[in-house]
């Protein structure tokens, strides 16, 4: 045995484990996506066992893409939810990172407070927001609106100004479980959780910004905006790309939040649709799964390219 063979062999357990973890379930999904396979069907009991006899070719894909009504809606929702979360977290994250990238009293406490939401379990995040904060009756949302209405009502009684306040309409609290707003609720709660992630990464990156270059720019009388635009943004280009792509990969598979907010009503995304199909039509669920894998891979290729560049240096 050469002196390097044994050390090389040490990577084998991890490789084998991950290979099994990836290939076995994915291979099965791929197979199921090409056969007719349902959990319950009284008329065609032969479809309830996965077998090559029930080969359907691209039939499941055809069904998912053209006949089942929810695929395009779910794909659209996935993209809207992921896109909005990324936009909010990157913009807020940049602003906050720049805001706290200076010395001021209590900076370390501010950092600790800011990063905390990121460690909250997704299930707790969703339960907390949808019940205790966004609920239109019992949550803070409802209480605040009610408070405003009571205030307006008492002001109406006031002499002189009462006339003016009687023009104020009674405000109705927004229900975040409704079809129109359920996606918004998910965007709010996930952005709350992931903005700290963006802040953390941008902040780390800002600290490695070339201060001499910055000071030279200031001496040359370069304005704050130009400094930001021509020094900070290029410096942050890679972290921004990484934040965007990591979030894309994570949020394309959002599930707990969707389930807890409204069980897919108004915010159904691809993972949720797969879950719905999987309650009976495994063939369709698998085909949707393969399509989701393809979507995630498009993002992943770009991410891997960027990460790969920094790998060996």
């Amino acid at each position: 045995m050469s002196s390097r063979a044994l050390p090389r062999l040490l990577q084998a357990p991890a490789v084998i484990l991950l290979l099994l973890w990836m290939l076995v379930p994915l291979g099965m999904t791929l197979f199921f996506s090409f056969i007719r396979y349902v959990l319950n069907n009284l008329r065609r009991p032969e479809w309830t066992t996965p077998s090559i006899e029930n080969w359907r070719g691209f039939g499941n894909y055809e069904y998912v893409l053209y006949k089942a009504k929810d695929f395009w809606l779910a794909a659209q929702n996935s993209l809207i939810i992921v896109g909005s979360i990324i936009f909010v977290t990157v913009v807020l994250g940049l602003a906050i990172a720049i805001l706290i990238n200076r010395t001021f009293p209590g900076r370390s406490i501010v950092r600790v407070l800011l990063i905390s939401p990121f460690f909250v379990m997704p299930a707790v995040n969703a339960v907390l927001w949808i019940n205790m904060i966004l609920d239109p009756v019992l949550g803070l949302n409802g209480l605040a609106v009610e408070g405003l209405n009571t205030m307006a009502a008492s002001l109406r009684e006031a002499p002189l100004l009462g006339q003016f306040f009687s023009l104020w309409p009674k405000i109705e609290p927004v229900s975040f479980r409704a079809t129109q707003t359920a996606a918004l609720a998910v965007i709010i709660m996930v952005s709350w959780q992931w903005t700290p992630f963006a802040v953390l990464i941008f902040m780390t990156s800002l600290q490695s910004e070339d201060q001499q270059q910055k000071e030279a720019a200031i001496l040359d009388g370069v304005g704050a905006w130009a400094q930001f635009r021509y020094l900070t943004i290029p410096h942050l280009a890679r972290p921004i790309a990484i934040v965007v792509m990591i979030q894309a990969i994570f949020h394309l598979s959002l599930y707990a939040e969707i389930e807890i907010v409204s069980r897919g009503n108004g915010n159904k995304n691809l993972p949720y649709l797969i879950g719905e199909f999987a309650s009976n039509n495994i063939g369709a669920a698998s085909a949707t799964g393969i399509l989701a894998v393809i979507m995630a891979n498009i993002v992943a290729i770009f991410l891997l390219r960027i990460v790969g560049k920094s790998l060996m240096d």
Partner: peptide
């Protein structure tokens, strides 16, 4: 290493049923 990372990017829902 890159391949290992790519396993992380597999959407879990896709392999839920298997």
């Amino acid at each position: 290493l890159m391949w290992m990372l790519s396993t992380k990017m597999l959407p879990a829902a896709a392999v839920l049923y298997p």
